[in-house]
Amino acid sequence: EVTIKANLIFANGSTQTAEFKGTFEKATSEAYAYADTLKKDNGEYTVDVADKGYTLNAKFAG
């Protein structure tokens, strides 16, 4: 089991951190699915991958 950390950075400057656990593939998929649920209210996002894929920095356009 691994933990994927998602740093969510919103256009207004606020941030949120979420963690997803499971296999690498499952946890990564859940992190992206969570970011997708936030698109409606926060706009499209881009992701910078860090820490060999164990940290995802998602920046929302607003």
Rank of each mutant, 00 (worst) to 15 (best):
K26S: 14
E30P: 02
K52N: 15
K21V: 12
A58L: 15
V2G: 03
D51M: 00
G43K: 01
A11F: 09
Y32R: 07
A58K: 01
L56V: 09
V2R: 05
E44R: 07
A61Y: 12
F24V: 07
T37W: 11
N7Y: 11
E1V: 14
A18T: 11
T17R: 09
V47D: 01
V47P: 03
F60H: 01
L8C: 10
G13F: 04
A35S: 04
L38P: 00
T55K: 04
K21F: 13
S14E: 14
A50Y: 11
K21H: 14
K40S: 10
I9G: 03
Y32A: 03
A50T: 13
N7C: 13
K39R: 12
T37L: 13
Y34P: 04
I9P: 01
D41C: 15
A33G: 07
A35W: 14
V47S: 05
A11T: 08
T15M: 14
K5F: 10
L8D: 01
V49L: 10
D41N: 11
T28Q: 09
T3V: 13
A31R: 01
E1S: 11
E19K: 09
F20T: 03
A50S: 12
Y32C: 08
K26W: 11
N7A: 05
I4T: 00
Y34N: 02
A6W: 05
K59N: 10
T46R: 08
F24C: 08
K40L: 12
D51L: 00
F10S: 03
G22E: 03
A50F: 11
E44G: 07
D41H: 12
S29D: 10
G13K: 06
S14T: 14
A61P: 07
D41E: 14
K52T: 07
Y45G: 01
I9W: 09
A31N: 02
T46C: 13
V49C: 08
L38W: 13
N42G: 07
E1Y: 13
A33Y: 08
T23V: 07
E25S: 09
D51C: 05
S14C: 15
K21I: 12
N12W: 06
K59G: 04
A27P: 02
K59V: 14
G62H: 07
A58C: 15
N42L: 09
K5H: 10
L8W: 11
K39G: 06
N12C: 11
G22A: 04
V47L: 09
Y32P: 03
F60P: 02
N12H: 06
V2P: 03
E44P: 14
E30I: 05
L8H: 02
K5A: 05
V49K: 07
T3F: 05
G53A: 01
D48S: 14
T15L: 11
T17L: 10
V2I: 10
A61T: 13
K26R: 12
N57D: 06
G43I: 02
A11M: 09
K5Y: 09
T3S: 07
E19L: 14
S29A: 15
T23N: 09
K26P: 01
V47G: 02
F24T: 04
N57A: 03
Y54H: 11
Q16H: 14
D48Q: 13
D48V: 14
T17A: 08
A35D: 02
G62F: 07
F20R: 01
T15Q: 10
V49D: 04
T28D: 03
F10H: 03
L56A: 04
K59S: 11
Q16F: 13
L8P: 02
S29G: 10
A33L: 09
A31S: 02
N42Y: 15
S14D: 13
A6R: 00
Y54N: 06
I4Y: 00
T28A: 06
T17I: 12
V49E: 07
K26D: 12
S29M: 14
I4R: 02
F24Y: 11
Y54P: 04
K40Y: 11
T28G: 01
N12Q: 05
K59E: 08
G22D: 05
K39I: 14
D41M: 13
Y32W: 08
D41K: 11
A35T: 07
E30Q: 11
F20G: 02
D36E: 13
T55P: 02
T46K: 09
E30N: 09
N57C: 07
Y45Q: 01
A27F: 01
K52V: 06
Y32L: 14
N7F: 11
N42C: 15
A33I: 08
Y32K: 07
Y34D: 02
K40N: 11
K40I: 12
L38K: 08
T28V: 13
G62D: 08
F20D: 02
K21Y: 14
N42F: 15
E19Y: 15
S14Q: 14
K5L: 10
N57H: 08
G53K: 01
Y34S: 01
L38R: 06
K52Q: 14
E25I: 09
F60M: 02
N7L: 10
L8R: 01
G43M: 03
K39S: 11
Y54V: 05
T37N: 12
A6Q: 04
K21C: 10
T37P: 00
T55Y: 05
D41I: 12
A6Y: 03
Y32G: 02
T15K: 12
D51E: 07
A35H: 00
L38V: 05
V2H: 07
A6N: 01
E25V: 09
D51N: 06
G22N: 05
